[in-house]
């Protein structure tokens, strides 16, 4: 799954640590999601979408 997390984070001048803190997860998890190595659960995806004020589809794109 592709995502725009890194771009959105950079736009708000957040570090990975800042975002991890805001989401209540580890920095490693934010890094793994950004790199597409780990797909977040639906609740975490909603949390991310809510934090950035976007819909899930605007942040995450499914790819076969």
């Amino acid at each position: 799954m592709k995502n725009r997390l890194k771009v959105l984070r950079a736009e708000r001048d957040f570090t990975q640590g800042d975002l991890a803190d805001a989401l209540g997860v580890s920095r490693q998890t934010v890094n793994a999601i950004e790199k597409g190595k780990f797909d977040p659960s639906l609740p975490l995806a909603f949390k991310i979408a809510s934090l950035f004020g976007h819909s899930i589809e605007e942040i995450f794109q499914y790819e076969n």
């Binding site: 209540g24 997860v25 580890s26 490693q28 998890t29 793994a32 780990f38 977040p40 659960s41 975490l44």
Partner: peptide, 13 residues
Amino acid sequence: RTLIKGMDELQRK
């Protein structure tokens, strides 16, 4: 068990 339940989803995985 408490430690693992308190981890985030990637850490648990």
